[in-house]
Design a protein around this nucleic acid. Structure first.
Length: 265
DNA sequence: AAAGCAGCCAACCGCGAGATG
DNA sequence: CCATCTCGCGGTTGGCTGCTT
């Protein structure tokens, strides 16, 4: 059978010209995103719809930041990569203005090499050197062969929840002393279960129990004592829109700011 | 000066998942 | 329920650029 080519006609390939960029930008501004095949046709671009989408999302869309990845961003990328692996889209979501493609390229060209040179380092940034010294004494646990997390659809997620899979909390290693501010946040990130994060991200509203100490006050959560099953427990914990990683990273950013004496910025 | 090499990054490609008819 | 369409994602490629010899 074989896959039908997505771009059957003769199309332009390679670098986009300024004219093409302008044409695409004008069209998307007027008509909005989506239906990229029609965008390509209606805008008169001899480009594949996928190519139009990629060009818009990675370069033309307002708010896209190009280059000059800051130390903080680099550090965030490293931490998220340890958590999520090559889930560039997920990582990019945590870095406003950055695209998955840029982060992926940055990783492949810079960070992976740096980390090869300093494989035991939790971060390559000078910002982290101090913390690295502290962490040397600890055995940082990075699952060497952690299974690559799959995207979890709604059906699979409900199965996971039925099996008490909330927060992946069956393993002691996933247990985090949520109330201990002294616990290294980087350690916390390392120990968190990847699939748990993905579930949380996909559902956009799930939070592990370990978050409750930290977040109850912030988001007005209450832990219902009547919750019987783990999944019930989780659902009771959850606000309508809650992104655990977002919150965790917010905490980490505040720590960085504090470290740099920038908490007022 | 020019050939060779390495690094960077924009763009392409194939696949999976969800939406739609 | 199935086929098709559309979108999003991650891996890979190829061209450009700068450096080295």
């Amino acid at each position: 059978m074989g896959r039908r080519p997505c771009c059957p006609k003769e199309i332009n390939k390679g670098a986009w010209s300024r004219e093409e960029d302008e044409t695409l930008s004008k069209y998307v501004v007027i008509h909005g995103e989506g239906k990229w095949q029609k965008v390509a046709q209606n805008a008169g671009l001899k480009r594949c719809g996928k190519s139009c989408r990629q060009r818009w999302l990675n370069y033309l869309k307002p708010g896209i930041k190009r280059g000059d990845i800051s130390v903080d961003e680099e550090d965030m990328i490293i931490r998220l990569h340890r958590l999520l692996g090559n889930r560039w889209a997920l990582i990019a979501k945590r870095l406003p203005g950055r695209t998955d493609n840029e982060i992926k390229n940055y990783w492949n060209t810079n960070l992976s090499k740096k980390l090869q040179k300093h494989p035991t380092s939790s971060s390559v940034s000078s910002l982290q050197n101090k913390r690295n010294e502290e962490e040397k004494s600890k055995q940082v646990h990075v699952a060497p062969e952690a299974p690559r997390p799959r995207r979890v659809n709604a059906v699979e997620y409900s199965k996971i929840m039925e099996n008490g899979g909330c927060a992946g909390n069956t393993s002691p290693s996933n247990k985090v002393e949520g109330s201990s501010d002294e616990a290294s946040f980087s350690d916390f990130l390392i120990d968190i279960d990847q699939n748990q994060l993905l579930i949380a991200d996909d559902s956009n509203s799930k939070v592990p129990q370990m978050e409750e100490d930290h977040n109850n006050k912030q988001v007005g959560l209450t832990n219902s004592p009547s919750s019987s099953s783990p999944s019930d427990h989780c659902h009771h914990l959850l606000p309508e829109k809650f992104d655990p990683l977002e919150t965790l990273l917010d905490v980490e950013l505040k720590r960085m700011a504090s470290f740099l004496g920038l908490e007022n910025d």
